[in-house]
Simulated assay, not measured.
Amino acid sequence: MKFAITSKGDAKSNTLMQRMRTYLQDFQLDYDEDQPDIVISVGGDGTLLYAFHRYKNRLDKTAFVGVHTGHLGFYADWTPDEIEKLVIALAKTPFQIVEYPLLETIVRYQHGGREARFLALNESTVKSVEGTLVMDVEIRGQHFETFRGDGLCIATPSGSTAYNKALGGAIVHPSIDAIQITELASINNRVFRTVGSPLLLPAHHTCMFRPVNAVNFQITIDHLTLLQEDVKSIQCRVADEKIRFARFRPFPFWKRVHDSFIAN
């Protein structure tokens, strides 16, 4: 089996990364940064997001496992004092594959047929560079509303505990193939009106955002921020691809939610 390791970059994470690499190579596993079967993320959720985007073209061939060196993360289920256990599990134990849904965002542009496609593990957001964001929102090809406000957040189930939760969105179990749209400070008065609630869309529903004004947009894809010009439309749906996690023991989603937001 071939493996690669990504680190948060701090001294603690780098030390653990080097120890794990040495241990796994002692077990005759091959270190391969280009075509790994397993990617080990050492750090936090941000480190795993980085690893996901680095290997997003190998999602059907690569599985991920996380070691957290800071606060408990939603994607990292091993602690630094369990490194030896994880190494033995990787070297000796068949693992279970758990798949989580991803978000596909396609940006299409004016004056031509070019488009850009992105995958997000957590969420994508759309904001106006200047002033109020004004977007026509379509669901399944039908006009739903004209949104006016600071922006829109489109989240995956596993990303529903991140920015989406801070915006008042629902926490969604990642076994559900869906995306969630939440509003950022929408304008609601006697003249302008939005639904004002998060929307949960199943895998066979596509949403489309069409700019009402010819302005530039700031679009985020997880931790990446992109300035987009001459945008014709932004399409979001559940992606055909999924991220694959290597599980060697139970890692219940609701326990992660409890430990992160409720437990002392």
Rank of each mutant, 00 (worst) to 15 (best):
F3T: 01
A4D: 02
S7D: 02
K8G: 00
K8F: 03
A11V: 12
K12T: 09
S13W: 09
R19E: 11
M20S: 00
R21F: 04
L24A: 02
L24N: 00
L29G: 02
E33M: 11
P36F: 06
P36W: 04
V39Y: 01
D45Q: 12
G46L: 05
Y50F: 12
H53W: 04
R54Q: 15
N57E: 13
N57T: 14
L59N: 10
D60I: 06
A63Y: 06
V67F: 02
H68D: 10
G70L: 06
L72F: 07
G73S: 10
A76L: 13
D77E: 15
L86S: 00
I88F: 14
I88A: 14
T93G: 02
Q96M: 13
Y100V: 14
E104R: 14
E104C: 10
I106V: 14
G112T: 10
G112S: 10
L119C: 04
E130S: 14
V134L: 06
E138Y: 15
I139L: 05
G141E: 06
G141W: 04
H143V: 03
R148V: 01
R148T: 09
R148Y: 07
G149T: 06
G149H: 11
G151V: 07
I154T: 05
A155V: 07
A155M: 04
S158D: 03
G159S: 07
G159P: 03
T161Q: 03
A166L: 09
A170T: 12
P174E: 07
A178N: 05
I181Q: 03
I187L: 15
N188A: 10
V191R: 12
R193L: 02
T194Y: 03
L200R: 05
L201F: 13
T206C: 09
A214F: 10
N216L: 05
Q218V: 08
I219F: 01
I221G: 00
T225R: 14
S233E: 15
D240Q: 15
R249T: 07
F253R: 10
S260Y: 11
